[in-house]
Design a protein around this nucleic acid. Structure first.
Length: 291
DNA sequence: ACCGCACCCTGAGCGC
DNA sequence: TGCGCTCAGGGTGCGG
């Protein structure tokens, strides 16, 4: 699932394929939950525009167009933003993956889940946005306008500080995990990096936020920054559907200490990693290392 | 103000 | 072989 590191890796790799290029044609699927801007309007707004920048805020990608309008993209759970010509087994169904020899994999062809296709006037490779579950989002923002989704975001998680967590957590009864998942406090933390940073900080995910000590807030902020920077360096986590724009897998999943390690020994003390549900999310922790 | 929870979606995996 | 059920979860919105 794409969180800040995966979105940042995507941004870095896709930016050169967007910035400076002019959109010649836009193909979309039909109206759906996915299109916050109706597809017909989106096609009209984008055609003929040139991308001038690609930025990131939390888990959102924000492209600026040469008329001052902006295109907001969110990868949701299963969003895949990539360049035409990429080949990745993650673009195939698991049955296809199982029956297809790796050397036989062919270039991905747009399917019903490929909701947005941008073709450019230079005739080069198109940029495609595919999303099986449609939890992703596309929104066109008029020049000079803002959007409540962006306005509500807290400090980018790469800039997390103990002070932010300390201030935000006082008198709060929510679980510590829910606090760091709150995008209005820190923008970019998702389920994987929440579990990982809590593990590294020795804090149990269910601990009431208001009971965190100042030292624990400092440790948590430092570890959030650390796991995210490390994940960006390794290309992000390719755990379910995430692929980078060139189809390469990330490697951070190999460094996981807690997430999706249910029943496996803790890499520090050997105790079996436990799985519970916190705030509707699968949550993994070491019952001994995390207090 | 805060908190818990239902909902949006589709495919995988399981039991029968 | 196939059906029906459950699970996965980011973000939004609503009811308590």
């Amino acid at each position: 699932m794409p969180e800040l590191p995966e979105v940042e890796v995507t941004r870095r790799k896709i930016a050169p394929k967007l910035v400076g290029r002019t959109i010649a044609r836009v193909h979309t699927t039909g109206e759906s939950y996915f299109f916050l801007t109706p597809p017909a309007e989106l096609r009209r707004r984008l055609k003929g525009r040139e991308f001038s920048a690609l930025d990131r805020q939390g888990k959102y990608l924000l492209a600026t167009l040469n008329d001052g309008s902006r295109l907001l993209l969110h990868l949701g759970m299963t969003g895949q933003l990539f360049v035409q010509g990429s080949s990745s087994l993650r673009l195939l169904s698991s049955t296809s993956r199982a029956t297809l020899k790796p050397e036989a994999q062919t270039e991905f062809k747009p399917d019903g889940h490929t909701h947005l296709r941008l073709a450019f006037d230079d005739g080069g490779p198109e940029v495609w946005f595919r999303d099986v579950r449609k939890f992703g989002k596309v929104l066109w923002i008029a020049p000079g306008e803002s959007d409540s989704r962006l306005d509500k975001l807290g400090v980018d998680a790469l800039l997390a500080t103990g002070d932010i967590l300390w201030q935000a957590s006082r008198k709060r009864t929510v679980a510590a995990k829910n606090l760091i998942l709150d995008q209005s406090i820190l923008a970019g933390v998702g389920n994987i990096y929440a579990d990982e940073s809590l593990f590294l900080s020795g804090v149990r995910p269910t601990r009431r936020a208001g009971k965190l000590t100042r030292a624990e807030c400092d440790a948590l902020a430092a570890n959030i920054v650390r796991v995210m920077q490390r994940s960006i360096e390794t290309g992000g986590s390719s755990i379910s559907d995430y692929i980078s724009p060139d189809g390469e897998d990330g490697a951070y999943q190999d460094e996981r200490m807690a997430y999706a390690r249910t029943g496996e020994p803790c890499k520090v003390c050997g105790t079996l990693i436990k799985r519970i549900v916190v705030g509707q999310r699968g949550t993994h922790f070491c019952p001994v290392c995390q207090k």
